[in-house]
Nucleic acid binder design. Sequence first.
DNA 1: TTGACAGTTGACCGATTAGTCATTATTATA
DNA 2: TATAATAATGACTAATCGGTCAACTGTCAA
Lengths: 277, 277
Amino acid sequence: MSKKQLIMERALELFAKQGFEATSVQQITDHCGISKGAFYLSFKSKDELIFSLIDYFMTQLISDIDYKVKNAQNEELLFTYFYTSFQTFFQHSDFAKVLMKEQAQTLHNKELIEKMHLYDRLLDKVTLSMIERLYGEEVNKTKYDLVYCIKGLMGNYSKLMLFSNASLDLKLLSESLVEKTNLLANHATIAFISEDFIQSMEQPALGEVTKEQLLEMITQKTDELEESIEKESLILLKQQVLEPSLSPAIVKGLLENIRNHPHCKWISYLLRSYFNF
Amino acid sequence: MSKKQLIMERALELFAKQGFEATSVQQITDHCGISKGAFYLSFKSKDELIFSLIDYFMTQLISDIDYKVKNAQNEELLFTYFYTSFQTFFQHSDFAKVLMKEQAQTLHNKELIEKMHLYDRLLDKVTLSMIERLYGEEVNKTKYDLVYCIKGLMGNYSKLMLFSNASLDLKLLSESLVEKTNLLANHATIAFISEDFIQSMEQPALGEVTKEQLLEMITQKTDELEESIEKESLILLKQQVLEPSLSPAIVKGLLENIRNHPHCKWISYLLRSYFNF
DNA sequence: TTGACAGTTGACCGATTAGTCATTATTATA
DNA sequence: TATAATAATGACTAATCGGTCAACTGTCAA
């Protein structure tokens, strides 16, 4: 394990307990068994550490949920959405706790708050596309409102379960939320959040990347990886972005190859969007 | 305005913008136009200030909602609940922002976290009693779950509106939530939160006070008040607690007298519970 | 005019923080 | 083994924090 990963893992444990601001670099290095100077060899500041943590987990979270949602049958779609979300959340419960604690306006780095908002909106986008697919035109007037209801319900249940040490039946919780979502989608008529409301809030462009940024990211990740199937797949995918020559089946297979590598989830997500899978 | 009130008002503005931990005493005193020493003449620590703020606003918030809910007709009950909650919330939006930011585990004072939990549970209690009154035995299995759904929905909409500067139609929002609550109450069958779950979480006693504590609080408040109808009412109510002699109508009238005084809302709430109004 | 007094001030204190860098330890190379 | 290159250390700095207290100000009765 690289020193960077060690620091990230151990720091996350402290952040989950005490919060980001309340945890000093000294505490982190003590908890890692390294010196303070060594910390600054891996991260150029404490802020860069929390940046890395949020990027690392949020990209995994979003791409995981997006993949599961895109590849689920309609009958199991809602359940899959909730179950995957909660599962991923509790799999990385330390990170989830940090996210809850520092949610919205506790952190004072402007850039970081913007990043969080961006990820937040990306998650909304996944939820919205699921709703549109499930209920179609019928919920055109209420779908944005529905997204916020789902978010509110999930957030509250997550908070409850993360900070109480109760044993958790994720299956029951997911089933319960499936029922509620169906009720609200099929019978609610009064929407508070409209499309106008959404548009009046978001000015900056959504998390889209240009072809050039995508290529650059692939190059960077390729350099980081050891020789492996994942690395070879990435190289082939890069060529495919530069000049398409492979069949869709091959491209899909290559994407599948890198999907479960923790460091490739985000690129996998971006490439799936790029190739329309 | 007393110096204490000045500090509380001005500090709240800063806390809403920056959060409690991120605001220094120096900033507060600068913003008040007083010296650092003067701050410590009114509050013996920075913690005591946030304590006072939370007590001052939470007691008002809870007693307001409780009163409105207890005195509303069944047909308008849900709407009144939501509308009053949101109205009170946005009337004191600076405090609401502080509450959102520091919710749960950001603050590091153990006593303060306990206090917040207590107020949280008191609000749950108000919500639960409303649900029981509205839907009766029919929701016995799902009522605790319903409380958490309502809380999640309200919390999410509140967050959205407090931190976006959008114009707000509280009537529409309340109507929308009335519809949703009715849908969930009348048709949801799968409850995730059960009575057992609740009981397994709360060990300490709920915010009940003994007769002695109640009398002491009344005495203290009486001393603080100027000569007024409110003060006279309080004195009479104290006697009524010591040895009941007045008719229910008179007691209710006396309670009404003090209900809207900012410093008496909490005592009014406690007395209403004590006298079963 | 004096002196007692309540109210107010801001320089100061000890503790803690993120971040630096000269020094030392370890490893790789020749 | 000797030398160069790299990795790791922890004492140090400058800044900020909550909280204290000797000194100062203005008021009013004597």
